[in-house]
Amino acid sequence: MLAATLTLITLLVVSVLLKVPYTQLSPGPTYNTLGAQDKAGTPVISISGAQTYPTSGHLNMTTVQVTGADYQPSLVSVVVGWLANDQLVVPHDILYPKGQTEQQSEQQNAEEFASSQDSAKTAALTQLGIPVGNEVQISEVVAGGPADGKLHAGDRIVAVDGTQVTDPTQVGPLVQKHKPGENVVFTVVPHAQDEETLKPSDESQVTVTTSKAPDSDKAMVGIVAAPGHNYPFKIDIGLQDVGGPSAGLMFALGIVDKLTPTDLTGGKFVAGTGTIDDKGNVGPIGGISMKVIAAREAGARYFFTPSDNCAEASKNTPSGLRLIKVDTLAQALDDLGKVRAGQDAQLPACPR
Protein backbone atom coordinates (compact mmCIF):
# COMPACT_ATOMS: atom_id res chain seq x y z
CA MET A 1 0.00 0.00 0.00
CA LEU A 2 2.79 2.42 0.91
CA ALA A 3 4.65 1.70 -2.33
CA ALA A 4 1.48 2.12 -4.39
CA THR A 5 0.63 5.39 -2.61
CA LEU A 6 4.13 6.77 -3.17
CA THR A 7 3.98 5.76 -6.83
CA LEU A 8 0.62 7.49 -7.26
CA ILE A 9 1.89 10.65 -5.56
CA THR A 10 4.97 10.63 -7.80
CA LEU A 11 2.84 10.26 -10.93
CA LEU A 12 0.57 13.10 -9.84
CA VAL A 13 3.52 15.39 -9.15
CA VAL A 14 5.13 14.53 -12.48
CA SER A 15 1.87 15.15 -14.38
CA VAL A 16 1.59 18.60 -12.80
CA LEU A 17 5.21 19.58 -13.32
CA LEU A 18 5.86 17.92 -16.68
CA LYS A 19 5.59 20.43 -19.52
CA VAL A 20 4.37 19.20 -22.88
CA PRO A 21 4.62 20.78 -26.39
CA TYR A 22 1.01 21.74 -26.95
CA THR A 23 -0.95 24.95 -27.50
CA GLN A 24 -4.39 25.58 -26.05
CA LEU A 25 -7.23 27.42 -27.78
CA SER A 26 -10.44 28.75 -26.27
CA PRO A 27 -13.37 30.93 -27.42
CA GLY A 28 -12.34 34.57 -27.88
CA PRO A 29 -14.30 37.82 -28.02
CA THR A 30 -16.64 38.61 -30.90
CA TYR A 31 -17.06 42.01 -32.56
CA ASN A 32 -20.11 43.36 -34.32
CA THR A 33 -18.88 44.69 -37.66
CA LEU A 34 -21.92 47.00 -37.66
CA GLY A 35 -21.13 48.40 -34.23
CA ALA A 36 -18.37 49.75 -32.00
CA GLN A 37 -15.13 48.03 -31.09
CA ASP A 38 -14.68 49.70 -27.69
CA LYS A 39 -16.43 51.60 -24.92
CA ALA A 40 -15.47 54.87 -26.56
CA GLY A 41 -17.78 54.01 -29.46
CA THR A 42 -15.09 53.66 -32.13
CA PRO A 43 -16.78 51.91 -35.07
CA VAL A 44 -15.35 48.64 -36.33
CA ILE A 45 -16.03 49.80 -39.90
CA SER A 46 -16.20 53.48 -40.81
CA ILE A 47 -16.90 54.79 -44.31
CA SER A 48 -16.45 58.36 -45.51
CA GLY A 49 -16.94 59.91 -48.93
CA ALA A 50 -19.94 57.74 -49.82
CA GLN A 51 -23.62 57.49 -48.89
CA THR A 52 -24.16 55.16 -45.94
CA TYR A 53 -27.35 53.84 -44.36
CA PRO A 54 -28.52 52.87 -40.85
CA THR A 55 -28.03 49.27 -39.78
CA SER A 56 -29.43 47.12 -37.01
CA GLY A 57 -28.79 43.74 -35.48
CA HIS A 58 -25.43 42.02 -35.51
CA LEU A 59 -22.93 40.71 -38.04
CA ASN A 60 -20.31 39.50 -35.60
CA MET A 61 -16.85 38.30 -36.50
CA THR A 62 -15.45 35.72 -34.10
CA THR A 63 -12.01 35.10 -32.64
CA VAL A 64 -10.06 32.43 -30.81
CA GLN A 65 -7.80 32.99 -27.82
CA VAL A 66 -4.47 31.18 -28.13
CA THR A 67 -1.75 30.60 -25.56
CA GLY A 68 1.57 32.28 -26.35
CA ALA A 69 4.50 30.71 -28.15
CA ASP A 70 6.53 30.47 -24.94
CA TYR A 71 3.74 28.96 -22.87
CA GLN A 72 4.18 25.29 -22.01
CA PRO A 73 1.13 23.66 -20.41
CA SER A 74 1.41 20.84 -17.92
CA LEU A 75 0.28 17.35 -18.80
CA VAL A 76 -2.69 17.78 -16.45
CA SER A 77 -3.71 21.01 -18.19
CA VAL A 78 -3.56 19.33 -21.59
CA VAL A 79 -5.65 16.36 -20.44
CA VAL A 80 -8.25 18.74 -18.98
CA GLY A 81 -8.29 20.60 -22.31
CA TRP A 82 -8.83 17.39 -24.24
CA LEU A 83 -11.83 16.56 -22.09
CA ALA A 84 -13.36 20.04 -22.08
CA ASN A 85 -15.87 21.18 -24.71
CA ASP A 86 -14.69 24.79 -24.62
CA GLN A 87 -10.98 24.14 -25.13
CA LEU A 88 -8.96 22.85 -28.05
CA VAL A 89 -5.47 21.38 -27.68
CA VAL A 90 -3.16 21.13 -30.69
CA PRO A 91 0.56 20.41 -31.13
CA HIS A 92 2.62 23.55 -30.50
CA ASP A 93 4.32 23.47 -33.92
CA ILE A 94 1.01 23.74 -35.79
CA LEU A 95 0.53 27.34 -34.65
CA TYR A 96 4.15 28.20 -33.90
CA PRO A 97 6.45 26.47 -36.41
CA LYS A 98 9.94 25.69 -35.18
CA GLY A 99 12.22 28.70 -35.35
CA GLN A 100 9.34 31.18 -35.38
CA THR A 101 9.16 33.57 -32.44
CA GLU A 102 5.93 34.83 -30.94
CA GLN A 103 6.69 38.27 -32.38
CA GLN A 104 7.09 36.81 -35.87
CA SER A 105 3.84 34.88 -35.47
CA GLU A 106 2.02 38.05 -34.40
CA GLN A 107 3.45 39.94 -37.36
CA GLN A 108 2.33 37.22 -39.75
CA ASN A 109 -1.17 37.29 -38.26
CA ALA A 110 -1.27 41.09 -38.55
CA GLU A 111 -0.25 40.92 -42.20
CA GLU A 112 -2.88 38.28 -42.95
CA PHE A 113 -5.43 40.49 -41.20
CA ALA A 114 -4.42 43.48 -43.33
CA SER A 115 -4.65 41.41 -46.51
CA SER A 116 -8.10 40.10 -45.53
CA GLN A 117 -9.34 43.66 -45.05
CA ASP A 118 -8.26 44.59 -48.57
CA SER A 119 -9.97 41.52 -50.03
CA ALA A 120 -13.12 42.22 -48.00
CA LYS A 121 -13.31 45.78 -49.35
CA THR A 122 -12.70 44.62 -52.91
CA ALA A 123 -15.25 41.81 -52.72
CA ALA A 124 -17.89 44.06 -51.17
CA LEU A 125 -17.51 46.89 -53.69
CA THR A 126 -17.35 44.47 -56.61
CA GLN A 127 -20.58 42.85 -55.37
CA LEU A 128 -22.19 46.30 -55.37
CA GLY A 129 -20.89 47.16 -58.83
CA ILE A 130 -18.61 49.93 -57.54
CA PRO A 131 -15.36 50.25 -59.58
CA VAL A 132 -12.13 49.31 -57.79
CA GLY A 133 -8.75 50.62 -58.96
CA ASN A 134 -5.53 48.62 -59.23
CA GLU A 135 -2.06 49.11 -57.74
CA VAL A 136 0.96 47.09 -56.61
CA GLN A 137 0.88 45.94 -53.00
CA ILE A 138 2.95 43.77 -50.71
CA SER A 139 0.88 40.68 -49.95
CA GLU A 140 3.43 38.93 -47.74
CA VAL A 141 6.68 39.63 -45.91
CA VAL A 142 8.84 36.57 -45.26
CA ALA A 143 9.52 36.14 -41.54
CA GLY A 144 13.20 36.64 -40.82
CA GLY A 145 13.87 37.99 -44.32
CA PRO A 146 15.66 41.28 -45.11
CA ALA A 147 12.38 43.23 -45.32
CA ASP A 148 10.95 41.80 -42.09
CA GLY A 149 10.01 44.74 -39.84
CA LYS A 150 10.68 47.33 -42.56
CA LEU A 151 7.96 46.58 -45.10
CA HIS A 152 4.52 45.22 -44.27
CA ALA A 153 1.64 43.45 -45.97
CA GLY A 154 -0.72 46.02 -47.43
CA ASP A 155 2.00 48.60 -48.13
CA ARG A 156 1.63 50.03 -51.64
CA ILE A 157 4.81 49.97 -53.73
CA VAL A 158 5.13 53.17 -55.75
CA ALA A 159 8.71 52.74 -57.01
CA VAL A 160 11.85 50.64 -56.65
CA ASP A 161 15.11 52.60 -56.78
CA GLY A 162 13.17 55.49 -58.26
CA THR A 163 11.62 53.43 -61.07
CA GLN A 164 7.83 53.62 -60.90
CA VAL A 165 6.07 50.25 -60.75
CA THR A 166 2.58 49.57 -62.03
CA ASP A 167 2.70 45.76 -62.18
CA PRO A 168 3.82 43.23 -59.53
CA THR A 169 6.06 41.47 -62.05
CA GLN A 170 8.30 44.57 -62.23
CA VAL A 171 9.42 44.31 -58.59
CA GLY A 172 11.50 41.13 -58.74
CA PRO A 173 13.69 42.12 -61.70
CA LEU A 174 14.35 45.55 -60.21
CA VAL A 175 15.51 43.97 -56.94
CA GLN A 176 17.64 41.43 -58.82
CA LYS A 177 19.59 44.21 -60.55
CA HIS A 178 21.45 44.32 -57.23
CA LYS A 179 23.96 41.87 -55.87
CA PRO A 180 23.25 40.22 -52.50
CA GLY A 181 24.32 42.61 -49.75
CA GLU A 182 23.50 45.76 -51.69
CA ASN A 183 20.75 48.19 -50.73
CA VAL A 184 17.50 48.63 -52.61
CA VAL A 185 15.22 51.59 -51.97
CA PHE A 186 11.46 51.16 -51.98
CA THR A 187 9.07 54.07 -52.26
CA VAL A 188 5.92 52.94 -50.47
CA VAL A 189 2.66 54.22 -49.07
CA PRO A 190 2.12 52.52 -45.69
CA HIS A 191 -1.02 50.42 -45.40
CA ALA A 192 -2.51 52.65 -42.70
CA GLN A 193 -2.14 55.81 -44.80
CA ASP A 194 -5.28 57.81 -45.60
CA GLU A 195 -5.39 57.61 -49.39
CA GLU A 196 -7.98 60.36 -49.68
CA THR A 197 -5.54 62.98 -48.40
CA LEU A 198 -2.40 61.38 -49.79
CA LYS A 199 0.31 63.83 -50.78
CA PRO A 200 3.72 63.06 -52.30
CA SER A 201 5.29 63.80 -48.91
CA ASP A 202 3.28 60.92 -47.40
CA GLU A 203 5.32 58.44 -49.39
CA SER A 204 8.09 56.74 -47.43
CA GLN A 205 11.56 55.77 -48.59
CA VAL A 206 12.50 52.40 -47.12
CA THR A 207 15.99 50.99 -47.62
CA VAL A 208 16.39 47.21 -47.47
CA THR A 209 19.69 45.36 -47.66
CA THR A 210 19.32 42.41 -50.00
CA SER A 211 20.43 38.87 -49.24
CA LYS A 212 21.17 35.83 -51.38
CA ALA A 213 18.14 33.85 -52.46
CA PRO A 214 18.11 30.33 -51.00
CA ASP A 215 17.83 28.65 -54.43
CA SER A 216 20.05 30.93 -56.56
CA ASP A 217 22.75 33.58 -56.46
CA LYS A 218 20.24 36.35 -57.08
CA ALA A 219 19.39 39.10 -54.62
CA MET A 220 16.16 38.99 -52.63
CA VAL A 221 14.40 41.07 -49.97
CA GLY A 222 11.76 38.55 -48.84
CA ILE A 223 8.50 40.09 -50.02
CA VAL A 224 5.70 38.95 -52.31
CA ALA A 225 4.33 41.68 -54.58
CA ALA A 226 0.77 41.22 -55.78
CA PRO A 227 -2.01 43.17 -57.46
CA GLY A 228 -3.60 45.54 -54.97
CA HIS A 229 -6.52 47.91 -55.03
CA ASN A 230 -7.53 51.47 -54.33
CA TYR A 231 -11.04 52.63 -53.70
CA PRO A 232 -13.19 55.62 -54.71
CA PHE A 233 -13.84 56.46 -51.04
CA LYS A 234 -12.36 55.64 -47.66
CA ILE A 235 -13.24 52.42 -45.87
CA ASP A 236 -11.48 52.04 -42.55
CA ILE A 237 -11.50 48.82 -40.53
CA GLY A 238 -10.04 49.95 -37.24
CA LEU A 239 -10.20 46.80 -35.16
CA GLN A 240 -7.13 46.38 -32.95
CA ASP A 241 -5.39 43.34 -31.41
CA VAL A 242 -6.91 40.88 -33.87
CA GLY A 243 -4.96 38.87 -36.42
CA GLY A 244 -5.35 36.31 -39.17
CA PRO A 245 -7.52 36.24 -42.31
CA SER A 246 -10.69 34.64 -40.95
CA ALA A 247 -12.80 37.80 -40.56
CA GLY A 248 -12.88 38.54 -44.30
CA LEU A 249 -16.46 37.39 -44.92
CA MET A 250 -17.94 39.27 -41.97
CA PHE A 251 -16.07 42.46 -42.86
CA ALA A 252 -17.40 42.25 -46.42
CA LEU A 253 -20.96 41.77 -45.16
CA GLY A 254 -20.58 44.71 -42.79
CA ILE A 255 -19.36 46.97 -45.61
CA VAL A 256 -22.23 45.95 -47.90
CA ASP A 257 -24.77 46.55 -45.11
CA LYS A 258 -23.50 50.08 -44.50
CA LEU A 259 -23.51 50.94 -48.21
CA THR A 260 -27.02 49.68 -49.06
CA PRO A 261 -30.44 50.85 -47.89
CA THR A 262 -31.52 47.28 -47.12
CA ASP A 263 -31.06 46.36 -43.46
CA LEU A 264 -29.33 43.03 -44.08
CA THR A 265 -29.97 41.38 -40.70
CA GLY A 266 -33.47 42.69 -40.06
CA GLY A 267 -32.35 43.26 -36.48
CA LYS A 268 -31.31 39.64 -35.92
CA PHE A 269 -28.07 38.37 -34.39
CA VAL A 270 -25.86 36.76 -37.03
CA ALA A 271 -22.21 35.78 -36.57
CA GLY A 272 -19.75 33.93 -38.73
CA THR A 273 -16.26 33.39 -40.02
CA GLY A 274 -14.40 32.64 -43.24
CA THR A 275 -11.63 33.99 -45.42
CA ILE A 276 -12.61 35.85 -48.56
CA ASP A 277 -10.85 36.58 -51.83
CA ASP A 278 -11.28 39.50 -54.20
CA LYS A 279 -14.00 37.66 -56.12
CA GLY A 280 -16.05 36.94 -53.01
CA ASN A 281 -15.17 33.26 -52.59
CA VAL A 282 -15.27 32.11 -48.97
CA GLY A 283 -12.57 29.78 -47.61
CA PRO A 284 -12.01 27.68 -44.47
CA ILE A 285 -10.42 28.83 -41.23
CA GLY A 286 -8.96 27.33 -38.06
CA GLY A 287 -10.50 26.98 -34.62
CA ILE A 288 -14.07 26.68 -35.86
CA SER A 289 -15.19 24.64 -32.83
CA MET A 290 -14.16 27.48 -30.52
CA LYS A 291 -15.73 30.15 -32.72
CA VAL A 292 -19.20 28.63 -32.71
CA ILE A 293 -19.05 28.58 -28.90
CA ALA A 294 -17.91 32.21 -28.82
CA ALA A 295 -20.74 33.20 -31.16
CA ARG A 296 -23.46 31.49 -29.14
CA GLU A 297 -22.15 32.89 -25.86
CA ALA A 298 -22.36 36.37 -27.40
CA GLY A 299 -26.02 35.78 -28.33
CA ALA A 300 -25.85 34.70 -31.98
CA ARG A 301 -28.68 32.61 -33.43
CA TYR A 302 -27.15 32.11 -36.89
CA PHE A 303 -23.54 31.35 -37.86
CA PHE A 304 -22.02 31.54 -41.34
CA THR A 305 -19.76 28.50 -41.68
CA PRO A 306 -17.39 27.89 -44.62
CA SER A 307 -18.33 24.65 -46.35
CA ASP A 308 -14.98 23.02 -45.60
CA ASN A 309 -15.47 23.69 -41.87
CA CYS A 310 -19.00 22.28 -41.69
CA ALA A 311 -18.08 18.78 -40.56
CA GLU A 312 -15.96 20.01 -37.65
CA ALA A 313 -18.40 22.74 -36.64
CA SER A 314 -21.33 20.31 -36.58
CA LYS A 315 -19.62 18.12 -33.98
CA ASN A 316 -19.75 20.81 -31.32
CA THR A 317 -22.60 23.15 -32.25
CA PRO A 318 -24.09 24.84 -29.16
CA SER A 319 -27.83 24.54 -28.66
CA GLY A 320 -29.80 27.35 -30.28
CA LEU A 321 -27.21 28.16 -32.98
CA ARG A 322 -28.08 27.44 -36.62
CA LEU A 323 -25.08 26.82 -38.90
CA ILE A 324 -25.40 28.30 -42.40
CA LYS A 325 -23.08 26.66 -44.93
CA VAL A 326 -21.54 29.35 -47.13
CA ASP A 327 -19.29 29.39 -50.20
CA THR A 328 -19.55 32.95 -51.55
CA LEU A 329 -20.38 36.48 -50.49
CA ALA A 330 -23.30 36.57 -52.94
CA GLN A 331 -24.77 33.46 -51.34
CA ALA A 332 -24.34 34.90 -47.83
CA LEU A 333 -26.27 38.01 -48.88
CA ASP A 334 -29.04 35.84 -50.30
CA ASP A 335 -29.12 33.83 -47.06
CA LEU A 336 -29.44 37.01 -45.01
CA GLY A 337 -32.60 37.73 -47.01
CA LYS A 338 -33.99 34.39 -45.81
CA VAL A 339 -32.95 35.20 -42.23
CA ARG A 340 -34.82 38.53 -42.44
CA ALA A 341 -37.89 36.80 -43.80
CA GLY A 342 -37.81 34.07 -41.15
CA GLN A 343 -37.30 31.36 -43.80
CA ASP A 344 -34.93 29.31 -41.67
CA ALA A 345 -35.90 26.01 -43.30
CA GLN A 346 -34.59 27.30 -46.65
CA LEU A 347 -31.13 28.11 -45.31
CA PRO A 348 -28.30 25.81 -46.47
CA ALA A 349 -27.35 23.87 -43.36
CA CYS A 350 -24.20 22.06 -42.34
CA PRO A 351 -25.03 18.33 -42.18
CA ARG A 352 -24.95 16.82 -38.71
Rank of each mutant, 00 (worst) to 15 (best):
V171A: 03
V160S: 05
Q127Y: 01
N309C: 03
T209A: 13
C310N: 06
L75S: 11
D335P: 04
N85E: 14
Q137T: 12
E140A: 14
A271H: 05
S48W: 01
P168M: 08
A247N: 08
K177Y: 06
A311E: 09
G28T: 04
F186N: 11
S46I: 09
I138C: 07
G81L: 04
L88V: 09
Q127D: 01
C310D: 08
K338Y: 02
V221W: 00
P97K: 05
G129L: 05
S15N: 09
Q37F: 00
G267L: 09
Y53N: 10
G99M: 02
G57L: 11
T7G: 15
N85K: 11
A120P: 02
Q107G: 12
Y71E: 08
K121R: 15
T265K: 14
N32L: 13
T169S: 14
K325C: 05
A192I: 02
P168K: 11
P214W: 10
D334F: 00
K98L: 10
T23C: 13
V175G: 12
R301L: 11
T207N: 02
L323M: 04
S15P: 09
I223S: 06
I255R: 00
T207E: 11
A110N: 09
V339W: 01
T55I: 11
F269P: 01
S56L: 11
T317Y: 12
Q100C: 01
T10I: 11
P29W: 02
C310K: 11
M61L: 15
Q127K: 07
D308H: 03
T30K: 04
T262Y: 01
F303Y: 15
D70W: 03
T7Q: 10
A294M: 10
Q72T: 08
L253Y: 00
E182M: 03
P146C: 06
P73A: 10
E135Q: 13
A50K: 11
D277L: 00
T305C: 15
T273M: 07
Q103L: 09
P97L: 10
L347R: 04
V20T: 10
V64N: 07
S105A: 14
H178K: 15
V64G: 06
P180W: 08
Y53I: 08
E102Q: 14
S314N: 08
Q170Y: 06
I223H: 02
T122C: 09
A311G: 08
I293C: 08
K291C: 13
S314P: 01
S246L: 10
L198C: 05
E203W: 02
G28R: 07
S289L: 12
D155L: 05
D344A: 15
A84C: 02
G144E: 07
S216K: 07
I94R: 13
M61F: 05
K179N: 15
H92R: 11
E196H: 13
P200I: 12
V175W: 08
H191E: 13
L347I: 05
K121T: 15
E182A: 15
T305I: 04
D93W: 09
L333Q: 08
F269A: 15
S116K: 00
L239R: 09
P284K: 07
V185R: 14
T187K: 13
D215Q: 14
T317W: 08
Q37C: 06
G274C: 12
D308W: 01
Q51P: 06
G228T: 00
T63L: 10
D202I: 00
A4L: 07
H191Q: 15
D257Y: 04
I157G: 05
T317R: 14
P146D: 05
L6D: 06
V13D: 01
L128S: 04
T55S: 15
Y53D: 11
V132W: 00
S26T: 09
P232I: 04
